[in-house]
């Protein structure tokens, strides 16, 4: 690791002193950043530790929940309000990493974690447009089992690895940001960017901005929601495909539905098209199959990951059918 200095932020102001142009980086639980520093992918000159800032998880005035950025993943998943009102979010977090890592990982760090593309992590040996813009992409034509089938570009086909962020996207969460010029709020579904020509630009977070909280709006549909993750081993592995879904049926018709996919795209993939295909329709197997087709429309796989199209279709149909079954 290259040398760096360490500062423990005591207040948001300490965190806002961050100057990325001088090599400052925020540190949450360190589960992603420390690893990437050891691999030489990240070389900050100063770490500002924000893991000691607010960890609060509180009901909001509007009837939702506000989760502070330093809340640990395990605390969010176990919180009674999250478990009962947004089970999809609890399950998504519990599907990720291990108990040890969830105890360390913060909500802010989870949102900002980098891709697990092996070529991205191989600073010494592989070309990567995300790590070194313009250098090329060794994943294309390489080992692509864990790469994306939707939303890719000729520059980058990496997936976003977060399970939590898939649920936040489906649940219309809002991300509260702070900067020296003031605060702003952005929808979780817009927070992560598609690679296009700039795979090194990954989120809407501007240099010098800090994530301070995530807000979940009141969402009746979320009461009946879940998250299913398909992976190469039963636990402690990143997703091949994952599905976060919520379903609300009234008098046989779908009143509200939320669908987002993980493991298939460079960002948490909110399937708006599939949701539109379902709203107002009866909750039948045919409708779910049509929704799955809509969700995978435009998929452009690599030779090594074409299996994900059918895997995602079947997982989505199975999850929606399971939710509908429980509602009967």
């Amino acid at each position: 690791m290259t040398p760096f200095s360490y500062l423990r932020a005591r207040s948001l102001d300490d965190a806002l002193a961050i100057d990325p142009s001088r090599g400052d980086r925020l540190l949450g639980g360190g589960t992603n950043l420390i690893d990437l520093m050891r691999k030489g992918v990240e070389q900050p000159s100063r770490l500002i530790d924000v893991s000691g800032l607010s960890e609060g998880i509180e009901p909001s005035d509007s009837g939702g929940i506000v989760i502070a950025a330093a809340a640990r993943n395990s605390a969010v998943a176990a919180h009674p309000l999250v478990r009962t009102r947004y089970p999809m979010l609890s399950r998504a977090i519990l599907a990720g990493a291990s108990a040890q890592i969830r105890n360390m990982a913060t909500v802010g760090g989870n949102l900002m974690q980098r891709t697990r593309c092996l070529y991205f992590a191989d600073a010494a040996g592989s070309r990567c447009n995300k790590r070194d813009p313009g250098s090329g992409c060794d994943a294309i034509g390489g080992f692509t089992r864990y790469h994306a089938i939707l939303g890719t570009s000729p520059s980058c086909i990496a997936t976003h690895p977060s399970d939590m962020a898939v649920a936040l996207s489906a649940l219309d969460a809002r991300i509260h940001l702070a900067g020296t010029g003031g605060g702003r709020t952005v929808p979780a579904a817009d927070f992560h960017l598609l690679p296009g020509d700039h795979p090194d630009r990954e989120t809407l977070l501007a240099p010098g901005e800090v994530i301070v909280a995530v807000e979940l709006p009141p969402t009746p549909a979320a009461l009946k929601s879940t998250y299913r993750k398909v992976r190469d081993r039963a636990s402690y592995a990143f997703a091949l495909v994952s599905v976060g879904a919520a379903l609300m049926v009234e008098e046989g018709r779908i009143e509200d539905v939320r669908i987002a996919l993980g493991g298939v795209a460079p960002k948490p993939w909110r399937a708006f098209g599939a949701e539109t295909a379902l709203r107002g329709r009866p909750a039948t197997a045919d409708a779910f199959a049509a929704a799955a087709d809509a969700a995978l429309e435009g998929a452009a796989p690599q030779p090594g990951n074409a299996f994900k199209i059918e895997l995602a279709r079947r997982t989505l149909i199975s999850v929606l059918s399971g939710l509908a079954e429980d509602l009967r």
Binding site: Y6, L27, R38, A99, N103
Partner: peptide, 26 residues
């Protein structure tokens, strides 16, 4: 030394964490 095996697990304030990905300063 990269968070993938759990051999380095210790308890910090009673909670299990990975000591390989924790800076001593933290």
């Amino acid at each position: 030394n990269q968070g993938a095996c759990g051999a380095c697990t210790v308890l910090v304030d009673g909670k299990r964490v990975l000591s390989c990905l924790t800076l001593a300063a933290q």
